[in-house]
Amino acid sequence: MDLREELPSDRQAVRDVHLQAFGDHGPVVADLVETLRDTITPEDGLSLVAEQDGQVVGHVMVSRGLLDAPRRLVEVQVLSPLAVQPGLQTRGIGSALVRHALGILAERAVPLVFLEGDPGYYPRFGFAPGAGLGFRKPSLRIPDAAFQAIRLPAYEPWMTGTLVYAEPFWRHDAVGLRAPTRRGDGTVVP
């Protein structure tokens, strides 16, 4: 397996991975990736793929966010989304992508990385519940245990406060969980 930066020729394959990995929520996530891709620069953010036998089988995106700290705004990164083709999950592909991304971010002197994710998965990389580290989540719809952060070597103790997501997360309504709604006949509408 090779880990590398996403190339323009990978766009459709990356979209397909997210559509497959996220099921009904796949179109929202895939559209978010399309929008966030335009915010990634060589110095800020990441879009990494895992390639196996010439096929893109996993993807992770890291984009700019802000921490509204008492002293000043702090540029941070948000790891979202992470996807691996369903048939290849639990084989270490997602873990390799996260570890590779965190290594690059530490080299770039990024102080903090945030995410919304499974509290049973991300602690293996050093992520911990954000509230316990002095951070406030950007939306009440984010479950407390899902709001996680990792402090990298550039972190300083005064860096506490509220995470502010980049605008595309709000535009695509990709923050937190929405309560399912029901039609008059009782059918759940995603």
Rank of each mutant, 00 (worst) to 15 (best):
Q85G: 00
Q148T: 11
A106W: 04
A128R: 14
I40Q: 11
I142G: 10
F114A: 11
S80N: 08
R72V: 12
E156K: 02
R71M: 12
H100R: 13
S80A: 15
P27D: 07
M61Y: 03
R141N: 15
L102Y: 04
Q77D: 12
P27T: 01
V110Y: 06
L32T: 06
L115P: 02
V57F: 05
V113N: 03
Q52L: 15
L79W: 10
V28H: 14
V33P: 05
L36P: 13
A50G: 06
R91L: 15
A21Y: 04
V29W: 02
V113M: 01
S80M: 04
P153N: 01
L88R: 05
G87T: 05
A50R: 12
P123I: 05
P70A: 02
V98P: 06
Q85Y: 00
T39S: 13
A30E: 05
D31Q: 10
R72G: 05
Q85F: 03
P111N: 03
A30I: 03
L115S: 12
H100L: 07
V29H: 02
R71W: 07
G45H: 09
A21V: 07
L66T: 14
E116W: 04
H59I: 15
I142V: 15
D53A: 12
G103C: 06
A128K: 11
V57W: 11
G117A: 12
L82F: 08
G130M: 05
D118W: 00
M159E: 10
L48F: 14
V33W: 07
R108W: 02
Y155T: 01
V62F: 03
V33A: 04
P70T: 03
L88Y: 07
D44F: 13
A96S: 14
D118A: 07
G161Q: 03
G126K: 08
P153C: 01
H25S: 09
L79F: 06
V74G: 09
Q148C: 09
W158Q: 01
S80D: 01
M61S: 00
E156D: 04
A145C: 00
K137N: 03
E43D: 15
S63E: 13
R72D: 14
P111M: 10
G103E: 13
G130H: 02
P138R: 08
P123R: 05
D44T: 14
A149T: 06
Y155D: 07
V56R: 11
V62S: 00
V78G: 00
G58I: 01
V74W: 05
E116D: 08
M159L: 07
L140N: 11
R108D: 09
L102C: 11
S47A: 11
L67G: 15
A50M: 09
L115R: 07
A50N: 07
D38A: 14
A149V: 15
V60C: 06
Q52S: 13
K137A: 12
V84L: 13
